[in-house]
């Protein structure tokens, strides 16, 4: 599964300081197309800060971000999404009160004529929304269904399908399974797997769930206190390594003793 191609997105010695507090202290990582790259680490390790830098929410204090080998600077989330970085935030940026289609195309509606008063191409948008969601494994019966009535997993899929349809080459998922029940977690993992199989999209996945990571991740980066403390492919790492590194390097065995 590991692609030999060049990384789609890469960071070099990324540093982010919030005043005197160093949230990221020189993080380097490479994400390849067709790969799920799991970003693991304890609470407050700096995972969200890292992806916010990648998606243009934060500007790094120093260090470089390279997209397809070219150094890039993002001044806003818009800049990032223009070069193909699609972020699915924890709140998914969906409007529960309107339909699947209206959410799918929110802010980028297809319309007849120019300008904001252009008439929506509703039927075409319905078709695309259904088709795109079907591509990553969710069949929607009624594109007019309000998003609020969909399950959490379906909503995740909608947000992911939307990001991909609008040209995301790098898909960033911040804890996509955290608020879901067992069955829906599996649904989302299947969706991610489908996206991975598309082959041309690099996925950055933040999760606290070791099992999920092991199920779909191709490569791991462990972060602790703003620094990378380990990385590798799924073949390189044993289950114990993962557990140990996820907890910030502390031995789980030690913890078990402490708790006892």
């Amino acid at each position: 599964m590991i692609s030999k191609s060049n990384p789609l997105i890469e960071t070099k010695d990324l540093v982010k300081k919030f005043g005197s507090f160093t949230a990221l202290n020189g993080v380097s990582l490479k994400v390849y197309p067709g790969e799920v790259h799991a970003l693991l680490g304890d609470n407050g390790a700096g995972k969200s800060t890292l992806i916010k830098a990648l998606s243009g929410v934060h500007q790094p204090t120093s260090g470089k971000i390279l997209v397809e080998g070219n150094e890039t600077k993002f001044n806003s989330p818009r800049d990032a999404s223009e070069v193909g970085i699609g972020t699915v935030y924890q709140d998914l940026a969906l409007n529960s009160l309107t339909s699947v289609t209206r959410n799918f195309f929110l802010g980028r509606e297809l319309k007849f004529g120019k300008g904001p008063f252009g008439i929506l191409k509703m039927q075409k948008m319905h078709n695309i929304a259904i088709e795109e969601m079907a591509k990553i494994g969710i069949k929607i019966e009624d594109p007019e269904q309000p998003v609020g009535t969909m399950s959490g997993g379906q909503r995740q899929t909608l947000a992911i399908a939307r990001a991909i349809y609008f040209g995301a080459k790098v898909l960033i998922l911040d804890e996509p399974t955290s608020a879901l029940g067992q069955k829906q977690q599996m649904e989302v993992l299947k969706t991610i797997k489908k996206v991975q199989q598309l082959g041309n999209i690099a996925i950055i996945l933040i999760t606290h769930n070791e099992i999920h990571a092991r199920l779909i991740a191709d490569r791991y980066t462990f972060i602790s206190l703003g620094e990378v403390i380990g990385s590798g492919t799924s073949k390189d790492l044993e289950g114990d390594d993962i557990r140990r590194l996820m907890a910030g390097g502390a031995e789980v065995g030690d913890l078990a003793k402490e708790l006892a």
């Binding site: 709140d91 998914l92 940026a93 969906l94 409007n95 529960s96 009160l97 309107t98 209206r102 195309f105 929110l106 802010g107 509606e109 319309k111 904001p116 008063f117 252009g118 008439i119 929506l120 509703m122």
Partner: peptide
């Protein structure tokens, strides 16, 4: 029927989204 309409709904429905 228009893009603005969708914007109006989403502005009131979920501003941050």
């Amino acid at each position: 029927k228009t893009q603005v309409g969708n914007w109006i709904y989403s502005t009131g429905g979920n501003l941050s989204a």
